[in-house]
Every structure is written in structure tokens, then in C-alpha cells.
Amino acid sequence: MNVRPLTVALGAVWALAFAAGLCGVAQRLALGHEAANYGSYIPWGLWVAQYIYFVGLSAGAFLLSSLVYVFGVRRLERIGKLALWTALVTLLCALLVIWLDLGHPLHFWKVYTNPQPTSMMAWMVWLYTAYFLLVLAELWFATRADLVVWSNRPGLLGALTRALAFGTHDISPRTLACDRQVLRVLGTLGVPLAIAFHGGVGALFGVVGARPYWNSSLYPTYSVSDVGAGIRWGTADFCGGVLLDGRTHGGVPGDRLPAGTPYPGAAGARPAAGVGRIQHQPVRVHPSPR
């Protein structure tokens, strides 16, 4: 197996970072917040900062995917699924981090059973829940064809994808066009939702009158810069996939389908009739050899 030195180096960096993170989580679980020992003036620390970071990435990656599924930018077709996947993973990272930030993580369900509508934090939790379900649904519709194709494989992968496909087999162009319509509706609902939950995070800080540097109606719009970070993250994902794979796709399962498979996202496939307004153009990432 041919492994590039770059892959090894990045893998080593990742493993080191993962080990450091595990130490932090172990300390959090064993000692609670004793190490940080928050006071009245700085009650929030690294956990909250990480959470804001991941939430911005999630919103940005989702809006990047909406370019494909809502606005029909076919030039970005190949990173649509990757962007959705990034949105889901970074959202889960954000929720995990903020969950560990709570003094009583096992009491988190009280936000659902006894929410207080005057609190921006309660609003945030509801919006996250709605957004999480929406991203899950959208990701399923975006990757359904891949799951169907992969479910023919033997072994664990086949069994897993068969289970995840929920018994659907049809990947005819008509069904796929139908999937795209569902994606379009979900994505259209998701764009205001993504802006709302991230604006909500900004409002969470903006409404705090006791903190002069937070208390500004401009604070919610800081999400714009975060969303930009998310888009850059999605793009970096794609370029990283190209860098490590050496191929002009982001390592998304659908892009590995053989040419001619009737799937809109597959390499070499023609877009289904009536889907997307802009003609498909191949993405060229590597400069052509001289």
C-alpha cells in the first residue's frame, strides 16, 4: 500500500492532538471544572470558545452545501455531500464540547422539559435540535444513492449501508430527481435555520448588558465571519481530500461510482433532467501538466 509521507505527517499531528484532547476530557470527567476554577468575572473558558468555533463551522458548511442543493450551483456539485457531512460532524463536536462545559451534564434534558423562553440559551438549544434533525435528513437524501450502491458490497460495510438505506433500492433518474427536490425543500428550510441558530449564538452574547464588550446589536452579525470560516473549512476539506488522495474529488463515496451510473453527483454522470439550472462543468483542481 502506497502511503504518502504527507499522510503520515498529518496523521501523526492528528494523533498527537487527539491524545492531548483525550487527556483534557479525562481531566474534565475526573475532576470536573476544578482545573479551570471559573470565577465571577470569567465564567466561561476554552470549552465555550471551542463550541462557538465549531458552531460557526457547522453553519458555514451547511450554507456551502445549500449553494448546491438550493441554489443549484452545479460547479460545486462534488463538495455538496462533503459540506453536509462537515456540517453534521462539526455540529456534533460543538454539542459534545458544550455538553461537557455544563456543571451538571446529566441534567441537560431539563432544557427540553422546563425551558424558559426569555433565555437565548433555551432558544439556541431548540434551534440546534431542529437543525440537527434537518441536517440528518438532508444528509440521508443526499447520500441515499450511494448507500443503495454500496449495500451490494459484502461484509460489514454492505450490512451497514443496507441498514442505513432503510430498504430503499430505487436509484432511477426519476427517483434521484425526486431526492433532489426533497433536498431543495429541506435546504430552503435550513438556510434561515442555520442563520437563525448562529445569529442566536451571537444574540446570546449580545443581550448580556453586564458585559460592555458583548452588549451590542452588532454581535449577532459576527456570525458572518464564522460562516466564512465554515465555507473555508469545507473548501479545505475538499482540497485536503485531493491532496491526500491525489484525485480530483473530495473522497466522497458517490464520486467513486463508475462513470455512467445514473446519479447526479457521480463523476461523469449527466445531471438528471430538470435538476439544476447551470450546466455541469468539470472541476479542475490540479494544474494541467506543462
Partner: peptide, 28 residues
């Protein structure tokens, strides 16, 4: 019993009248 320990109220208090109990002791 109801508090989840999110510390949002600490940020909102202009008088720093609230504290988070991290579980440490004075002799720590």
C-alpha cells in the same frame, strides 16, 4: 436540582454576585 451549571447567569450579573462551585476546597 434544576440548575444545569451553564453559568449564563454569572455572565449576566453586573455585580459579580454569583459564583460557580467547581468543587475545590480552600486547602486545595
Amino acid at each position: 436540582e434544576q440548575c444545569i451549571g451553564c453559568r449564563y447567569c454569572i455572565t449576566a450579573c453586573p455585580y459579580a454576585a454569583r459564583v460557580f462551585d467547581s468543587g475545590d476546597f480552600y486547602t486545595f
